[in-house]
Design a protein around this nucleic acid. Sequence first.
DNA 1: TGCAATTATGAAATGGTTTTCAAGACAGCT
DNA 2: AGCTGTCTTGAAAACCATTTCATAATTGCA
Lengths: 351, 351
Amino acid sequence: MAYQMEMSGGTINKPRGRSGGARLTMQDIARLADVSTPTVSRVLNGSPLVTEETRERVLEVARAHGYAVNRNAQKLRHARTNTVAVMLDFGSHRHGAIGDPFIFELLAGVSEALSVRNQDLLLSPPGLDDVRAFRDFHRARGADGFIVLGQGTRDEMLRALGKHDIPLVVWGAVSQDAGYCAVGSDNLGGGRLAGEHFVANRRRRWLFVGDIRHEELRLRYEGLKLAAQGVRNVTIDLLPIASMAFTVTAETVASYLAGVAPPDAVFAFSDTAAMAVIGAFRERGLIAPRDYSLVGYNNIPPSAHFHPAITTIDQKTDVAGALLVEKLMEQIDGERPVPVMLPTRMVKRET
Amino acid sequence: MAYQMEMSGGTINKPRGRSGGARLTMQDIARLADVSTPTVSRVLNGSPLVTEETRERVLEVARAHGYAVNRNAQKLRHARTNTVAVMLDFGSHRHGAIGDPFIFELLAGVSEALSVRNQDLLLSPPGLDDVRAFRDFHRARGADGFIVLGQGTRDEMLRALGKHDIPLVVWGAVSQDAGYCAVGSDNLGGGRLAGEHFVANRRRRWLFVGDIRHEELRLRYEGLKLAAQGVRNVTIDLLPIASMAFTVTAETVASYLAGVAPPDAVFAFSDTAAMAVIGAFRERGLIAPRDYSLVGYNNIPPSAHFHPAITTIDQKTDVAGALLVEKLMEQIDGERPVPVMLPTRMVKRET
DNA sequence: TGCAATTATGAAATGGTTTTCAAGACAGCT
DNA sequence: AGCTGTCTTGAAAACCATTTCATAATTGCA
């Protein structure tokens, strides 16, 4: 028996996973090109330590057989895995809550930037809510670093994470003492722009729609307050948030309106929320800009076509994805990158 | 010298990747718990072949040190990697084009469903446009299967892929002869619902907004035509698509309107596109539902708050993510799953 | 021609886990 | 006591690619 097996000579015994697919290994390519595995490896990694002739032969064989290097074996071998974990704040997009497609535009940018650098993008599962789960995920996958899109109410966890020497970049509020690297837009400035818009329109009773437990939204609220200073008799109201983070619904707005004298200015945390505001106000017979001013956030395309067209704060995010990735890479390479704040501007439309 | 090294006894020589992190291996846990690696492995995988006492000791050590199994090593060892690649049609969300957040809701569902099954989600890079690139990516990552969200204009590629024995599930148009497993909603039915809405409102000059090179959209268009049969003198126009797939913009609609007698009914491929239509029509002094009927698609939350509130086709997608994953898993396990078509219904609102 | 320096290549070790196989411990039985 | 069978454990191989080190081949030079 034992003899038979020895005589069978190598390749026969390999149990291949799926039918047909016949996953090729570097070994196979080496054999076919009549070289050793290291040589194949060198060719595929563009090492100069290889004859032009050998290189071509190997490349030819590899191409002909559609060989692709096994990334998992690579990842195992190297300390660096070329894998980046991305955490997405899905919270805002489940259960009919009002979320903007904004985060996903960010994701698109990140995906593209990572792809350019040949990095794999591993999307983290929902529910990575504590440091432990987060770190375990990171370790187990051997990700080089983490990009968190949407700081949400996780500021505390992220701060704790900062001490765990996991390369980490967060899209969200940028603060000096965060202990982690944040990239985000100037939320304070954005809030102030909204406030100035209200001042210019002589509005006096302002409403902020958004959950200020979110650091980003808190800053926008602070910006709003800043703009109110120096103007007499401005009151700023906060929409009472009943439930979970970011889950402002049209009903929340409507039920708020039922109880109070209506505001004459509303600053909503997202354009989508602004749309809900317009709907709820209309039911009360309140029309913008006649009865109130309204400023949204993010400048998503439909805002321009909405009736009335929504005045909004535009975050320059076309470069955001690339910037997030760049900052992460710096960190992975051992640098300590400085946070970046992108400018915001107001897009004045009808409201 | 050699003696010194031998005497140093094992752990010292390991070059650890990043400072502090001190990545633990199963070996370390084994040593600390005074057992062998296989035993640790067995414990961690819940094998019954281990004493209760040993199990507890190992678990204790593992927990105390925050050990997490190296997934990359696991992936290398197994034929099955527990990794699913997901391809997202970002096309619709770049460069200011009008895309719906719809795809992302799907992504959220898929992410959640995969997480429940403890599968990793690898987001594929943009630009996997041909069979070769697609297959190479799949192979190199050792993904067990592929989920494609948004068939787009890739039907042909996907069909070719069907022959490559890659487990594959596509969200999109469901057809009998596709050769790959599709999950999607009843686009034909959705189109017919829109058409019936127009018939009921005695509209005669219909416009379809959407690029029918997309299989899904073509089916909706076919459904629309079906509804037109049996009604006299209905004409259906197609919005001429200038540029890339799905990139209908407000300008496209406006320039179309400039050249023709305006339609009295519009069926838009997405709610977001419907919003653009409303904007463009308003500029021509055309108001829904006074001057035309309008039906959108996807029933995204803002549609309800839009002015006028948009009549739309609702796809029951709360289960879609789970369904996509389920179908993929069946396929990975060797079954040949049947395509699934989810029902659609019309949500009648003001338009 | 002989020697050193350079270049191209391969053998073996490595990374962390799982699996197979064999061995050891121990209980139950005659 | 001796045997069989069950239960728990560990040694070694395997997964696939990369890296180090050593060897073979070639060139340059005296």
